[in-house]
Amino acid sequence: MSATTSVPDGTDTPTADPIVRIIDLHKSFGPVEVLKGVDLEVHRGQVVVILGRSGSGKSTMLRCVNHLERPSRGTVVVDGEVIGYRIKGDKLHELSPSAVAKQRTRTGMVFQAYNLFPHMTVLENLIEAPRRVKGVNKAEAVKDALQALEEVGMAHKADVYPSTLSGGQQQRVAIARALVMKPSVMLFDEPTSALDPELVGEVLNVMKRLATSGMTMIVVTHEIGFARGVADEVVFMSEGRLVEKGPPSQVIDAPVHESTRLFIDSIL
């Protein structure tokens, strides 16, 4: 203990430039090791696209960023704060579920299956978390919600239930729902994979606009076109490891690693 007493007892680590730091991340489900030591830094305003075959661990990594999955080893730092743990001496002590819940307001997540709450209208979906988690008053929450819906082009559907919307519309609402929490980083877990082909474009357009507005984004997707056009950095994952990383012109168009090349060829 004597050597490490200088480490502050708290969740704040000295601020670094990157908004997300993933350090030596491991995750096993039973005997299966899905992540075998991943390191990644994402800077403010950056759009990072993660490519890889299914089962390569990309979704698991993304879900570790907001602690939907608990890492087996390693650390995730968002906005200068260790997610899920408190540094005490030279160990990480698990935080209470409610403390982790509070930390999650820094990250917004968009899921493959939209996951809107079916028993609430679109507007109710959007004001639920700001009101109950952040304690925003109703008038302000509604104002923010309508503005967010405006941004994704869904303001005219504020009073309908999600089941009456198309997949693309539901996903745009889901993006707005994450945005009203004013997160520091947005996580997208295959946001267009469940959509009919003709609906993919409207969701990608919303994401493009979001990227242009300066939002920090980590996107797991198979949309090579989006990666090429919008990503600042593309990361290729294979078998739980980060294999290749760089600008899209390099990773997509001139991959160095054999497995990256095979993957890119297979989906183009």
């Binding site: 907001n66 939907l68 579920p97 409610s98 819940a101 509070k102 999650r104 307001t105 990250t107 917004g108 997540m109 899921f111 299956a113 996951n115 809107l116 709450f117 639920e128 978390a129 109950r132 988690v133 952040k134 729902r177 994450a178 929490m181």
Partner: peptide
């Protein structure tokens, strides 16, 4: 997925259950 979506929005377990 429903409780996951609620949790990802920062809702705690009780809020997730009740709402």
């Amino acid at each position: 997925h429903q409780s996951e979506a609620a949790i990802a929005l920062g809702m705690n377990r009780w809020l997730t259950f009740r709402r």
